Amino acid sequence: MSTSLAEGLKAYRDRDLESLLERKKLHLVLDLDHTLIHSREKTKLTLGDKQLILNPNLTLPEILNGTYLVKLRPGVDVFLRKVSTMFDLSIFTMGSENYAKLIKNLLEDFDNGVQFREVLSREDCQVSKKKTLDMFLSHERVVVIVDDTDHVWMNSSHNEANLVKIAPYNFFTSRGVSNPCSKLEGVDVQFLYQSMDEELARVLAILRSVHDGFYGGLDCVDRDVRQVLKLVRECEEHKRGGREGGEEVNARKGKRSYEASFDQPMDSSAAAKRYKACNNVIDLRLRHMLRILMP
């Protein structure tokens, strides 16, 4: 990259940083497939999938002249609406440019004001099948990634500090594997799948904590979202560890408000304990971030 081009890019990112800070927002880069959606070419549907899609309770938009079916991840509309109040949203997918734009239109079609500022696809990759934050017009210290895979990021060891990894969403099944809901009759399959997948609610809690941690102090000009995310991630991992052995969601317990799960605050007791344990080790800025995570 030439010196003049590098300087121009830095100047643009500086202006973007100023805009984000003024609006108290960060920049969120979202993957599509297995993160916000699961799509399947119609010719590759399994027998179980073909039986399942006949259920009238399912909504499966068609794209690419009806050759693909798209299943939106449960709660994606609520997730996008809530997260857009804290972040500018962008997309980076390994799908084609046309595919990315079609999915973008689907996700913006909830009548909730959500818009994506940048949409990148595999045609934009500098290295084949590798993503990088270098392609975005924001400084990395204000960018958070949500993706179900980390190895697709070109500098995975570096970008890991920006990454919130989400469990992959698989609605359609692989050949030879039966769909667990394909033989259910008289069942609200949409609700059943919502009950089985609450990853977006979990990720939203992390993103909310990151945003609050970044903007919780009086001076955030020199703050780095990667430092905040590290602490929030440790809190979330501790919380997850306490649940090992497992909580299984039972759809037969009755319908509850799925959207309500997006309003549950992150349990920050682990952050409080960590603060007390390393009080004399971490610097003052990180101490302040931990205080923000405390109840």
Rank of each mutant, 00 (worst) to 15 (best):
S121E: 04
L284I: 00
Q264W: 00
D147A: 02
P74W: 02
D49K: 09
L133P: 02
A271D: 05
S90E: 05
Q264R: 13
F92V: 08
K25P: 01
K25V: 11
R291I: 10
R256D: 15
E123R: 13
V203S: 07
K273F: 01
G216Q: 04
A161T: 15
D77P: 09
P295D: 08
L28W: 03
Y215H: 03
V232K: 06
T46M: 07
V114Y: 07
H139Q: 03
F171I: 08
T93W: 04
V114I: 14
M289F: 15
S268I: 12
Q190R: 15
N159C: 08
Y99K: 02
L32S: 06
L286P: 01
L106V: 10
I103D: 02
L120D: 08
S156P: 00
R256F: 15
T46D: 06
V164G: 03
H139L: 03
L231N: 08
V210Q: 03
S96V: 04
L58V: 10
F171G: 02
L21C: 15
L32F: 11
V210E: 03
A251F: 14
I166T: 11
L9N: 12
K276Q: 09
V144C: 05
A251R: 11
K276M: 06
L293H: 06
D222I: 07
Q115P: 00
